[in-house]
Simulated scan of single mutants.
Amino acid sequence: MHTLRRAAVVGLGTQALEDHLPGVAASRLAELVAVCDTDPGRVAPVESAHQVPGYTDLERLLADVRPDFVIIAVPHHAGRRITETCAKAGVHVMKEKPFATDPAEAADLAVLCRTTGIELMVTVQRRFHPVYRAARQMLEHVGDPYLLEGRYTFRCPDPSAGWRGQAGLAGGGCLIDMGYHLVDLVIWYLGLPDRILAHTSATASPGASYDAEDTALVHLSYDSGLHGSLLVSRSIGPKAEQLRVTGPQGTVVVERGRASRLDPGGRPVESLTREPAWPRAATAQIDHFCRVLDGRCPNPSGPDAHLPHAAFLGAAYASATTGRPMDPKEFL
């Protein structure tokens, strides 16, 4: 009989409540053994609902419970410290995106994981969703891409609310947060661009006090002749997410719940629809990470795999500041 991996969840905000805790509950390979948050008011109801010990001190949790791995779902600025605490205790980590708040932090965390020998997997749910995997296969049939169009938008009533409104805490705004998913798809499907020109804005809510961008427009260029743009905003409704990649033999369109391949005239060739549009990818990630820890499969989303993401974001924010195109490879 397979021994269940012991998991603890650190950070009991919306992401943990809606994704990670249900994901562990549905896992065939892991069991929840503890939860932690600095706010006692968040700990108590989760502790009671899941019948596991709750903590407000991570070091005490690690010493008392000795989990096999910790799922980190905390504000961006706190991620490094929590990861370092887990690594010091020899505890593996599943970490909510982003991997790091800037390229220097990403490099430091990658070294930390190598020197301590812990596994770290960044949670990028789309890599575990059948629609996004199907889209990657469809790209093989459109020829060498020359056009990329991406959009991820939704309406946040108050972009100044909480730590996400402060660039110093979040590492940026919508681009490093929700935009991380588009960045991950671009790198997974097409690789790191050769040039990035970005523009950002934090003006959607006049009178509100925040400096983390609510809207970002990023232009991408590859030496292969592929060009494109990504629009990310938390100020535009309704919620929409789409990525289109066009080559000489057609276009691949991927959105939540559906991947399609079109011929050069825009007529459908094939498609895959998944209902519900967003199954429990969190459980698939957790089960995969357990297999990584068991040595049964490689880690597809480890620290080194996310250094390009940090470089992409570093180049984009540098471009937005200077007004000049940037080569993301210089940020690796």
Rank of each mutant, 00 (worst) to 15 (best):
Y180N: 13
L307C: 13
S209I: 13
A34V: 00
L272M: 12
A104E: 13
A26Y: 09
V186C: 13
P159H: 01
A30W: 02
E255F: 09
W278P: 02
D108H: 10
E213G: 01
T153F: 02
E275D: 13
L217R: 09
L313T: 13
L169F: 05
G11P: 03
A277E: 14
C174N: 10
A282M: 09
A100V: 10
E270S: 14
L12T: 03
H77V: 03
P159N: 04
G143R: 11
V24T: 13
P206S: 04
G117I: 07
D144R: 15
C290D: 02
V218K: 07
S209D: 15
A26P: 00
G257N: 10
Y180V: 11
W278I: 11
P238H: 12
D304A: 14
P22K: 09
G250F: 04
G266A: 04
L147I: 07
A259R: 10
L12D: 01
R126I: 05
R280I: 08
A281Q: 11
E31R: 15
R136W: 08
A318P: 05
T322K: 08
R155P: 07
L332K: 06
R256W: 08
D57S: 07
V33Q: 01
D304T: 14
G191K: 11
E213K: 01
R234I: 14
V24K: 12
I72D: 06
A8R: 00
D177P: 00
T115H: 07
G323S: 05
L61Y: 00
A316C: 01
A100Y: 07
E119N: 07
R274Y: 12
A281R: 05
Q249D: 15
P45S: 03
P298C: 06
R267E: 15
T153H: 05
L313K: 13
R133F: 03
R280Y: 06
T115Q: 14
G323H: 03
L190F: 12
A320H: 01
T38Q: 05
I72H: 04
H2L: 10
A25E: 14
P193N: 01
V292A: 01
V93N: 06
A277Q: 13
G172Q: 08
I71Y: 01
Y132V: 08
V9L: 02
S224F: 04
C297R: 12
A167K: 15
L32K: 01
M121T: 04
D68I: 08
P268M: 13
K97G: 08
H199L: 15
K88N: 08
P157M: 09
R324C: 12
P130Q: 10
A73I: 05
R151H: 11
S260A: 12
R234P: 07
A259D: 10
E84A: 09
T251L: 03
E31I: 06
I118Y: 03
I82Y: 07
C36D: 04
V186L: 15
W163K: 06
A73L: 02
I236Q: 11
L58D: 03
D19Y: 10
V252N: 04
R324A: 14
G295V: 09
L272A: 03
D108C: 08
G228D: 11
L109Q: 03
Q137I: 10
A316S: 05
F312S: 08
M138H: 06
P325Y: 07
V93T: 09
V232C: 14
T56Q: 05
D223R: 15
G191P: 09
R244T: 09
L182A: 08
G207T: 06
Y317D: 06
T101P: 05
G173Q: 04
P145S: 04
L313E: 15
A34T: 02
H129L: 04
